[in-house]
Nucleic acid binder design. Structure first.
Lengths: 218, 218
DNA sequence: AATTTAATTTGTCATTCGATAAATAAGCAA
DNA sequence: TTGCTTATTTATCGAATGACAAATTAAATT
């Protein structure tokens, strides 16, 4: 149990990080902490997890709310990958293939306990960044899918109707909710993510073909 | 502004409810309160909403956690309608019709702000009643749907496979998540609930026909 | 009206919360 | 080393929290 003190070049003392790096480290651990405990949890609890005292947090963040905003930013903004949209719009591949690839990488990005819990907590708080994220999903994912579907089916290029967007939302939400059941409720009975996605996309494509060709739409 | 005191048989003074009725009234208002503010909110805030002082709550409930348990019970257990399952199993009607009727009445029961927020809050807390509710959905809704689908398609009566249940879960979760978007995120762009349900069921039936007849399943 | 019983409020306690100021410790440059 | 700067801790404040006991009020019963 005696610690090997003879390590001259690397003293076991705490290495001092740059102020910005330390701040980022705090944010990253705050993501884990608030994701698990909720945003109502105490700054003292977070400080304990960080191994520091609670007032130190106020050297790096002016208030608890400011720290929470940094957590939102790190989760919502920085984990969004701009290449997702061109992937969906790549007409050299069948749409069903693109959708399978997209939902594979998209769920790789968001199907983790921290992301999903932060998302659900912030959604219940009704913060603005949550609404903006939903708009981003609609504009960069769902509407492109509908445009690509019309091309795939040889239909004229008209803007997606509201009820068409809702239809794609239901599939998207169903896949998202599979992640919630798997990672948060721990009630998913199949953990073969790619299989679940593939089946959902099969039904989505079949439904889209029926819906987009259907005669009477509002 | 003078109150009409001349109402001899019914004095405008506060009518005293029976102890049990008052308790139920507290629970009902606690549902609204905790649904909006979250379970971390204070008993003083609830008491203010009730128009009473905070210690009075402890005459009706031994602790805050006990009150929260009563809220769970009122939301999860008492709003479940046993007739939902026989409705799904009524083979005198086509399955698609039954599904449309079922999801119409099911969403009438759960698509309200209080129910959905209590559900999401309790899910994030990981309380046991949430897990039990998910099992109830699987056993009383999703698996019956798969059994009925096999009958509808003239397939042999074998128990549903895990990935088949997940497939129905995705549609079910998608419809549920439509309610979340509409009532909590307020980001739904079509509020024609029946239309959203009908489209989802069209895709579900098409997907089920493909999936249940498919050759290679695990 | 007098008495009993239940409902409700007042007052309070120990703890915990976010936040601030002052004191200390640790790294860095000369 | 010596001083200077930054990081971190100690101590503390006022407000809010869940819970309890005792006092008070209001309804019900006789």
């Amino acid at each position: 149990m005696t610690q090997p003190d003879i390590a001259p070049n690397k003293p076991p003392k705490r290495k001092r990080l740059s102020s910005e790096a330390r701040r980022q480290d705090f944010i990253n651990q705050a993501i884990e902490f608030f994701a698990e405990e909720g945003f109502e949890s105490s700054t003292r609890g977070l400080a304990k997890k960080l191994g520091v005292t609670q007032p130190l947090l106020y050297r790096y963040f002016p208030s608890k709310n400011n720290l929470i905003s940094e957590v939102y930013d790190a989760v919502y903004v920085k984990r969004w990958q701009p290449e997702w949209e061109p992937l969906l719009r790549d007409r050299s591949r069948p749409l069903a293939d693109r959708l399978n690839t997209f939902y594979k990488v998209y769920t790789d990005a968001i199907f983790n306990r921290e992301w999903m819990r932060i998302f659900l907590f912030s959604g219940l708080k009704g913060v603005d960044i949550n609404r903006r994220y939903m708009q981003l999903v609609r504009q960069r994912i769902l509407e492109p899918i509908l445009i690509e579907a019309r091309v795939e089916f040889g239909l004229p290029d008209v803007p997606p109707k509201h009820c068409e967007v809702e239809f794609v939302w239901v599939t998207h939400g169903g896949i998202f909710y599979y992640g919630v059941r798997d990672l948060i409720y721990e009630s998913a009975i199949s953990t073969d993510k790619d299989r679940v996605i593939a089946d959902a996309i099969t039904a989505l494509m079949a439904g889209l073909e029926i819906k987009l060709n259907g005669p009477k739409q509002t």
